[in-house]
Design a protein around this nucleic acid. Structure first.
Length: 210
DNA sequence: ACATTAAGTGATT
DNA sequence: AATCACTTAATGT
C-alpha cells in the first residue's frame, strides 16, 4: 500500500502498527508555503511526516514569526500531540517549507496505540524528549546572548569606578555577582576576548572596547 | 619542588 | 545554562 510509510517508519514502528496507520490515516500533500496548522485552530489529527520539511513557528502580538523548530522526515510534531491530548487550541503555526507529504492520524487512535504498541509509546515519548531538549537549548542561547551583553556592561561600569581599563577581579567573583557559575563566566569572557572586546589576565581583566 | 588557587575545556544534563 | 571532572597556568611558601 504505502511504500513511503514503510521506508520511513519500518525501523521505528512495528508492522502491526504500520498496518493500523495505513488503515486509519489520511495522506495529505502540501506545496511549499502551505499552512498545515494555523495558530488558534483545534487539532483533530496528528501529522506523521513522510516527505519534506515543516517549519513550526509562533506568532507574537505583532505580526512577526518566531521560528521554533523544523520537523523532518520520520518525525512528528510533539506540540500538536500535546494539543490533541489536552484537546486545546494550537499555540503554533505549521507551514510546509518544501513540498510535503504527510499522514494525518486521527486523535482517537492515540490512546489505543499508546497502550497497545510499545514502539508507538517510545516514538511519542522520544519525540517529546527531543523537542523539549531543543526548546531548552533555544531558550538558553537567548538568555546566553543577554548575559554576554550584561557582562560587557558590567565590565565597562567597573572601569569607570576604578578609572582604569584594567579591573582586578576573578571570574569567580563576577560569577557571584551574576548568580551563576565560574565556568559560565570564564566561557563568556573567553568569547569576549576572542571577539577583541577584552583581554584576560590572571586576577584581572583589561577592557578594550569601552 | 610542592601546594594552592585561578582559569580553560569537554562532556553531560 | 549549570555542573562535573579534569587539565593547565600562575603564584606563593
Amino acid at each position: 500500500m504505502n511504500q513511503d510509510l514503510r521506508e520511513n517508519y519500518s525501523y521505528l514502528l512495528e508492522d502491526e502498527l504500520l498496518v493500523e496507520i495505513e488503515k486509519h490515516s489520511l495522506l495529505k500533500n502540501y506545496d511549499c508555503g502551505d499552512e498545515i496548522i494555523r495558530q488558534g485552530q483545534y487539532i483533530k489529527s496528528i501529522p506523521l511526516l513522510i516527505e519534506g520539511t515543516i517549519k513550526v513557528s509562533r506568532k507574537d502580538e505583532l505580526d512577526d514569526e518566531i521560528m521554533l523548530y523544523y520537523i523532518e522526515e520520520g518525525e512528528t510534531c510533539a506540540i500538536s500531540m500535546n494539543c490533541c491530548l489536552g484537546n486545546s487550541k494550537s499555540q503554533i503555526l505549521a507551514r510546509a517549507e518544501t513540498p510535503t507529504k504527510l499522514l494525518m492520524i486521527p486523535v482517537e487512535y492515540m490512546d489505543e496505540w499508546m497502550a497497545k504498541f510499545k514502539s508507538w509509546r517510545e516514538f511519542v515519548l522520544s519525540s517529546f524528549q527531543t523537542r523539549l531538549n531543543e526548546a531548552i537549548y533555544t531558550i538558553d542561547s537567548l538568555v546566553f546572548l543577554k548575559m554576554e551583553e550584561r557582562l560587557m556592561q558590567y565590565l565597562r561600569d567597573k572601569t569607570k569606578i576604578v578609572h582604569d581599563t584594567a579591573i582586578n577581579i576573578t571570574h569567580q567573583e563576577i560569577a557571584k555577582d551574576f548568580h551563576t557559575s565560574r565556568v559560565v563566566i570564564s566561557r563568556l569572557l573567553k568569547k569576549l576576548e576572542i571577539e577583541g572586546d577584552v583581554k584576560l589576565h590572571r586576577n584581572s581583566i583589561e577592557v578594550i572596547s569601552l
